[in-house]
Structure formats: C-alpha cells, structure tokens
C-alpha cells in the first residue's frame, strides 16, 4: 500500500498486519431506558472459534446485531479485518455492506427463504459477489452465464459440505429443522465470509445432529473462516470453542479459554446464582438440557477439559 499514515488505533491500510479478525471496543446499546450492551469490548483472533455465552437477556444477540449492522450502537466501534492488512469499521454500515466485507450470519430462529429450493437459497448467497447486471442477464452475455454457472456449482459444493446435496431441489421450508439449520449455514458460507456468526446453531437439534454440527463447524474453521458463536449448549461450546466470552447484563464478565472461564467465580455466580456447589440444576433451561445430553450420549469424543469442566458447571 502507499505511505498513508495510520490515523487511528484501529489502523488504516498501511498499518502493520493484525492477527485479529474482529475487535469491538466499548459498545453501548440502549433501547429507550433499557441498556442492552454496557461497554462491551472483545477481540477475536483470526482462525479462532470464539463462543459468546451468558444467561438469557445478557445481550448476546444484541451484540450479534451490532456486528451485522442490524442495530447501531450509540457508542463504540467494531473493526473487522477481511485480510490482516485491511481493517474496516463496521458500525454505521448497512447489513448487506457488512456481508460484502466478509461477515455472514445465521439467525436464532431460522430465517430461510421458505418458498425457494435449498439450492436457490444457497445461490442467493453465492451470487451476492457477482457483478453482472440486468443487461447481462437479459441478453445472456457469456460473462453472465459463466458467473451463473459458477454460482450454481459453488452452491452445490456448499450443499455437499453441509450434507444436503440430495436435498438441492427441495423447498427450504420442507426440510426438517436440523437440515434447515445446516442450510442456513451453507447460505451464509455462500457469501464467502472470513467471519461466520452463528446464533445458537444447536438450538432444537437432536444429539446426532449436534455431533454432525460440531464436525461441520470444525471443518468450516479448518477452511480458514473464523467463527463467532452464541450457544447455550455448554458441552458443544466447551468442546469446539478456542476461547469464550461471557456476557451478563450487557457486560463482559469473563474472557479466556473454556477451561479458564469455567473456573471463573463470576461466571459460576452468573450462571448458577450464589449457591455454588454440587447438584445445581438451575443453570437456565438450555444449560440443563445440554448437560442432560452429555449423560445421554456418554463417551462422545471430546477433549478432557470439556468433560471435566462440564462436571464443574453441573
């Protein structure tokens, strides 16, 4: 790049390469009198699988919405690096522009295009970076045709990745819940993101689906896409996250590796109330559910830490 002086802490083109993919600084989000995010800062390194956890209403989805442009925080900034030398400010951009920068998301309550086929759903993702316009489409120009074919074949690759290629021509709304979750991930991947935001990807899926989801997330991360996920299923979080951020009442109360976070007294208190100790089942309905699953499928291959820490939470 040219010799443009760095003008801010976030840096501009020309600043030294960063190993971060996302950095949020001091985010404040209020709705009327309700403070949803109260000075949240977090950093995610490239390639990391970062999990954001916290009790219901802690501000997790609000945080996601600030990262994707759905909400605009009153204060603070969010910087995203598509490549290590290209930081970009997120706050103030529209959701589609943020997707173009390289952040894709899924929704907590699945939002597919119900009357389109699975393939078309993914195609919409793969086609957002294409450049051909109405004239190319109408005249059937060679460039447009080539891009269209490329979009279709990329969509098939992604359907294959999430294990839905046999469903390509089925209506999105006709798929079972677990497949809809995976289809949503494929659609998000279609936009060629560097950072994928997953909002409770395991909600409402059965144990078998959870296992395949876990494998899928690892595979996506292995392909060079950083992953930020909100999840209530502690077992899943502990097994796949490389680091964890805990939110409570719109503030970050802990940040570290899964093991560190699990032992953090503030976290234990936030989740379990003051009565720390054995046999607490009141850790929010989903936590309890997640733990129940662990006992149900017994010795799933998972890191030793996750097994141990899981018991800690219980």
């Amino acid at each position: 790049m040219t010799a443009v002086a760095a003008t801010g802490p976030a840096g501009t083109p020309g600043s030294p390469p960063s190993d971060l993919v996302l950095e949020a600084r001091d985010l404040m989000l209020r709705f009327g009198g309700v403070t949803s995010l109260d000075g949240v800062s977090l950093q995610q390194r490239r390639g990391e699988i970062l999990a954001v956890i916290g009790p219901n209403g802690a501000g997790k989805t609000s945080l996601f919405n600030c990262f994707t442009g759905a909400y605009r925080p009153q204060q603070g900034s969010v910087t995203f690096w598509r490549t290590s030398r290209r930081p970009a400010e997120i706050v103030g951009r529209s959701p589609h522009a943020i997707t173009h920068l390289g952040i894709a998301r899924t929704f907590q309550n699945i939002r597919l295009f119900p009357a389109l086929s699975a393939l078309e759903n993914v195609q919409i993702g793969t086609e957002v970076r294409q450049r051909y316009g109405p004239f190319g489409a109408i005249l059937g120009l060679p460039g447009a045709r080539r891009q269209e074919r490329a979009g279709v074949s990329r969509a098939f690759e992604l359907l294959d990745l999430v294990g839905l290629s046999h469903r390509a021509h089925d209506l999105a709304s006709s798929l079972p819940h677990g497949e809809q979750r995976r289809l949503e991930i494929a659609r998000a991947l279609g936009t060629d993101p560097r950072l994928l935001l997953l909002d409770e990807p395991a909600a409402g899926t059965n144990p078998a689906e959870k296992r395949s989801l876990e494998a899928l997330i690892r595979r996506i991360a292995g392909g060079g896409v950083s992953i930020l996920l909100i999840e209530h299923d502690m077992r899943l979080v502990m097994s796949i996250a490389t680091s964890v951020v805990v939110l409570n009442f719109g503030r970050v109360i802990a940040h570290g590796t899964p093991a560190e976070v699990q032992h953090d007294p503030a976290v234990v208190e936030a989740y379990l109330g003051v009565e720390t100790g054995g046999g607490v089942e009141a850790g929010g309905p989903r936590t309890a559910h997640g733990s129940g699953v662990r006992t149900a499928d017994g010795g799933v291959r998972s890191a030793d830490t996750s097994g141990g820490t899981d018991r800690e939470v219980r």
Binding site: H96, T99, E120, Q123, E127, A137, Q147
Partner: peptide, 26 residues
C-alpha cells in the same frame, strides 16, 4: 431471463424475508 438470474432470485429473497436477504448480502 431476468427472473431466473441472480437478480430475480434476489427479488424473491427480498419478497420472502427482507431481513434475511439483507443479511445474506442482497
């Protein structure tokens, strides 16, 4: 041709779920 192109699909996406369309980069 327009309807079957990426433009037509983008319109369908907007019709069916504008928020999801926007989040998918449309």
């Amino acid at each position: 041709r327009l309807e079957r192109s990426r433009i037509g699909r983008a319109w369908a996406a907007i019709r069916e779920d504008e928020i999801a369309a926007e989040a998918t980069g449309v």
